[in-house]
Nucleic acid binder design. Structure first.
Lengths: 145, 145
DNA sequence: TCTAATGATACCACTTTGGTATCATTAGTC
DNA sequence: GACTAATGATACCAAAGTGGTATCATTAGA
């Protein structure tokens, strides 16, 4: 449902957002986030071309956020890397559904799907950043996931 | 997220549940539900081996529900045909998550996932059947989906 | 015995996903 | 101006999942 592209992108964007530097290089993130180098590079380029990151070429270059962390939502990343978020693509696309149970199933799924999208759209880079609220400082380490 | 196997299975089970006959043949459902014959057959066999359907071989045979329609949940079908329902498989499986944002992302996704599962588990064969409540009789046909 | 049905199994094509490799381009630094 | 550290662009590849096909074996009623 959420692919590595999206997952990695979210982590990389958080890393960039939390960095004090003007720009962060791909290599720095490879070390910090344990993402395969060529894979991460391709991913960052996509984010650049989508206008989420801005890039600086040449020595001393790297990537920086092009927009405010609060405006970059998880749903947007999913859209970029995975296309539409659909829990179920109705088998009977343009035709009439053959019976009521069929339509009802679709209605249920659609309703759940709307909720999921609503909740995913509330997750942004900002909402995942360490700086967001004070309770962050209490935690010492991450836990096994 | 929800594959054709699961979708078809749900429709087929509803069809069987609504049938007045003691058992329904695969061929009858092929005509009614527009599912490719060999594909439906494989699917019905899986449902039989999982104990959701019981089958009768030989002439006059077919399939019938092995359990009450209310006990067959959408989540169970998803489990059979697609394995676990996971919105996101954490990239850092057994290791410690490298930072807090990572864990927080996982927590958000997990929470959404739990909600989805809860709602999917409320959908059963019974809840999709025509007989379930009176309003069914008013509707004349399905609509385009 | 014939035939209508399911059981079992093997196979296949297409798409998505995750990842690699290569070369071109840009821009600081010596 | 050459060197080098960085991104841009593009093409390629392997594994897995999905959707579907084909074939033969088995069962049981007429």
């Amino acid at each position: 449902m959420i692919t590595r592209n999206t997952d990695y992108a979210m982590r990389a964007l958080c890393y960039i957002a939390e960095s004090k530097k003007k720009s962060v290089t791909a290599d720095e993130m490879v070390g910090a986030l344990r993402i395969p180098r060529p894979f991460l590079r391709k991913l960052l380029q996509q984010l650049s071309s989508e206008g989420i990151l801005k890039s600086f070429k040449g020595q001393g270059g790297g990537f920086a956020l092009a927009r405010k962390p609060g405006s970059v939502k998880l749903t947007e990343l999913i859209h970029i890397f995975q296309g539409t978020v659909e829990l179920n693509e109705c088998v009977f696309k343009k035709k009439l559904c053959p019976n009521r149970a069929t339509c009802r199933l679709k209605r249920e799924i659609d309703s759940i799907e709307r909720d999921v999208l609503e909740r995913l759209s509330r997750v942004s880079i900002a909402s995942l950043m360490n700086q967001e609220n004070g309770c962050a400082r209490v935690r010492r380490r991450g836990h096994a996931g």
